[in-house]
């Protein structure tokens, strides 16, 4: 009976037969952001890449699929997803000398379960017209009454903001952060909405004077015909330069525990941490590469060097649940 069924299934159910050499990716990042790099990889190695993109739920999918999952890699756009994957034991160590050499230890998991690929700074944009450049701006100062009604941001629960709030908890403790959130909320020009670009646009429109946003959006906007005007209306500020440095988030990659093509997956990770791919991340996506010595995009370079918050990402990640709870408690988004 079983044998018969087995034969039936193999002959009748046309499970899409994939190329011999392939690597399967679950991606939280939009395909158009990573496709150029994947295409390059395929051109060089002949390994085909298959992608499923979704912004939500991919971790649950990997988890539920268990050992039959066809995903070899998961690409994430923030560190909390990396750490969640690791905590759910859905990953396996990335054993590669090359990766270990290219990526500084701070941007790798100590056990090797994840590797960061790019860095993005949580910047604060200020209106050229109304505030000018704010060299000594801190995240803490966003709570000051002088900014009442002047700040724009996306949802507090978005991973980028959540990471920032978690780092605030890590540095200042829970009580301070809750008050800080309440004060920032009071300073908001409008209910949190839209994405990071939309905040810069709002500054341009005069709805607010300060906007929270990731660094690469600024670069992307400057190269977009329509959005250039928005970006031109603001300065990009790197907060907390006089003390601990600016908060970072990372995009990264894990290899799944049950990867069916581990060798190819490893090749792709190595490619993504190579000079070539890191260069593309820098030049095409305007991100900060994690590999030291890779040239920045001239535009990004023009923003100058800055001090990074040295606190380990895994340390910040510990405070993520607290951060989320606080955001709900102060009803930040409502």
């Amino acid at each position: 009976m079983k044998r018969l069924l087995a034969v039936l299934f193999t002959t009748l159910v046309c499970t899409p037969v994939m190329a011999d050499e392939e690597v399967n990716i679950y991606s939280f990042r939009q395909p158009f952001l990573i496709q150029p790099i994947l295409d390059k990889f395929t051109a060089q190695t002949g390994i085909k890449t298959n992608v499923v993109f979704a912004k939500k739920g991919l971790i649950e999918r990997v988890k539920r699929e268990g050992k039959h999952s066809r995903a070899d890699l998961v690409l994430t756009s923030n560190f909390s997803a990396l750490i969640q994957l690791e905590e759910l034991e859905l990953t396996q160590p990335i054993k590669s000398e090359q990766v270990a050499q290219s990526i500084p230890a701070a941007f790798r998991d100590p056990q090797g379960d994840w590797v960061a690929l790019t860095k993005r700074v949580r910047n604060v944009y200020s209106s050229k017209e109304r505030l000018g450049e704010l060299k000594s701006l801190t995240y803490e100062s966003l709570a000051e009454p002088k900014y009442r009604g002047k700040i724009c941001t996306r949802s507090g629960k978005h991973p980028y903001n959540l990471g920032l709030v978690a780092s605030m908890v890590a540095h200042h403790g829970e009580a301070y952060t809750k008050q800080w959130l309440l004060d920032v909320k009071a300073n908001l020009a409008r209910k949190p909405q839209g994405n990071d670009r939309a905040q810069v646009k709002a500054v341009k429109e005069g709805l607010c004077d300060l906007a929270l946003g990731n660094s690469y959006y600024f670069g992307k906007m400057l190269t977009d015909e329509k959005q250039k005007a928005w970006a031109d209306s603001v300065f990009i500020n790197f907060p907390n330069q006089e003390n601990r440095g600016s908060h970072l988030n990372v995009s990264g990659v894990v290899m799944t525990k049950y990867a069916k093509n581990p060798a190819n997956a490893l090749k792709l990770i190595e490619f993504m941490t190579s000079d070539e791919a890191q260069n593309m991340y820098a030049s095409v996506n305007m991100e900060y590469p994690v590999k030291p010595g890779v040239k920045l995009s001239p535009l990004v370079e023009s923003w100058g060097t800055f001090k990074e918050d040295a606190l380990a990402l895994s340390e910040i990640a510990k405070y993520r649940p607290v951060a989320l709870r606080l955001i709900d408690e102060v009803k930040f988004d409502l």
């Binding site: 999918r61 699929e65 039959h68």
Partner: peptide
Amino acid sequence: LLPLTLLDNKLNQWFANTNFEPGLLLSGS
């Protein structure tokens, strides 16, 4: 996904001693 992956895993167990591996027949297609 909850029932389909469960079913897929059961199916794989059931076929374990044949040379056929259904994989994610239901949830992956």
